[in-house]
Design a protein around this nucleic acid. Structure first.
Lengths: 187, 187
DNA sequence: AGCGTGATGTCACTTGATGACATGACCATA
DNA sequence: TATGGTCATGTCATCAAGTGACATCACGCT
C-alpha cells in the first residue's frame, strides 16, 4: 500500500491553477489547494515557498536555458546579437501552449501580487543574461543595458502574443519587436 | 490635551526605515513599527496597505510627475524624445538625497519582497508613460517599447548612480545611459 | 450646547508561513 | 531476513500579516 501518491508537486500546481481560475487568487486558501491535491497545507509549503510561487514553477528552467544561450553564442557576436539569440530561445520556450499560457497570464494580470512575482522572475532573467554577457567580456553597463533592452522586447512581444486571438510564432514576434525597438530608440 | 500626535504617517515611515535598517525587514514586525511611532498596528494598516508599502510612499507623486512630463512635451517630439524628457524629470526627482536613497536602496536590495514591490512600481511608471504616449497618438506597440526602453535606461542609470561613491547629477547619468542604449541597440 | 467628522484604539478573526517532531514506505547492505 | 538510513509526508503549535466591526474622543461648525 502506498503511503502517498507520487507527484505531489504537479498535483499542487494543477489544483492551484484550477482554484485560482475558479475563485480567484485571494479567495482560495492554501488549505484548499492542498486538499484538492490530496496533501496537507504543510506539504504545499514544502514544494513551494509561498502561495504565488506555485504559478512560476518553470522559471528556473527558463533562466537556465537563457544563460546557456548566452554562453553558447558565437564569440564574435555583439551584445545585442547575443540578446537576439536569447530572445529566440525564450520565444521558443514561452511560445508553446498558447491557451494555457493565456489562462495563466489572465490570472496573473488580475492580481498585483502575482504581477510582482512575475516581474522579479523577469528581472532575474535580465540579471542572468547581463552576468553572462559580462563573462563574455562585455563591460558591465553595456551588458546591463543590452539585457534590459532584451527584457523590454520580451515584455512587449510576449504581451502582444498572449493577447492575440490568432498568435503566430512568438519567436517571430520577438524578432519584429527587436527591430521595432531599434527603430524607436534611433529616433 | 491632544488625543493623538499628528503626522502618524510620517512617523511610521521614519520608524519603519529605522527598524528595517536595524534588524532587517522580516525581523521587524508591524507592531514594533507602530509602537515606535506611537500608534497601533491597526493604524499602520490605515496608512499603508502592507508592510512593504511604507518604503514606497512617494511613488504616486513620481508617477504623476512623469505622466505630466509626457503630456507637456512638445507636440512634435518623437516618442524617444518624450522619454528623454521623462527621464530628465525622473532624474531630477530621484537624484536628490543620495545618502538617504542609498540607504533605502540597500534595504530593498537585501529583501526580494521589497524588490518585487519596487519592480511593480517601476512597471506602473512604464505603463503610465506608455499610456501618455498613446494619448499623443503614438501607436501602442511603439509607445510600449519607448516606455520600456526608458525604464531600461532608468534602471541602469539609477543603479549606477546609487552605488557610486561620488555620484554626479542623476540626470546627466540618464542622458549618458540613454546614449549608450542607442549605441548598444544599434549594434 | 449640540452635532457631525475623522483619525485612532480595541477586539476578534482568518490566513499565510515556519519550526519541531513523528511516521512509515522504500532502499541498501550486512 | 534484519537493520538502519533516507525522504516525503503528517501533525501540532505558534507567530505575524492583514481585515472587519465597533467604540472613542478631540475638533470644528452651526
Amino acid at each position: 500500500m502506498v503511503r502517498w501518491e507520487p507527484g505531489a508537486g504537479g498535483r499542487l500546481r494543477e489544483a492551484a491553477m484550477e482554484l485560482y481560475v475558479e475563485r480567484g487568487f485571494e479567495q482560495t486558501t492554501v488549505a484548499e489547494i492542498a486538499q484538492r491535491a490530496g496533501v496537507t497545507a504543510r506539504t504545499f509549503f514544502r514544494h513551494f515557498a509561498d502561495k504565488r510561487e506555485v504559478l512560476f514553477a518553470g522559471s528556473d528552467d527558463l533562466l537556465a536555458a537563457l544563460t546557456r544561450a548566452v554562453a553558447e553564442a558565437p564569440a564574435e557576436a555583439s551584445p545585442m546579437t547575443v540578446v537576439a539569440a536569447v530572445l529566440d530561445v525564450a520565444g521558443g520556450l514561452l511560445g508553446q501552449d498558447h491557451e494555457r499560457t493565456r489562462q495563466r497570464q489572465s490570472i496573473i494580470e488580475a492580481h498585483p501580487e502575482l504581477q510582482e512575482r512575475e516581474l522579479i522572475k523577469l528581472a532575474r532573467m535580465s540579471a542572468g543574461v547581463a552576468e553572462g554577457l559580462r563573462e563574455r567580456g562585455v563591460p558591465a553597463p553595456e551588458a546591463a543595458l543590452a539585457a534590459e533592452a532584451g527584457l523590454a522586447v520580451l515584455r512587449v512581444a510576449f504581451g502582444g502574443w498572449v493577447s492575440a486571438s490568432d498568435p503566430g510564432d512568438l519567436r517571430v514576434a520577438m524578432r519584429e519587436t527587436l527591430a521595432a525597438l531599434r527603430k524607436v530608440t534611433a529616433s
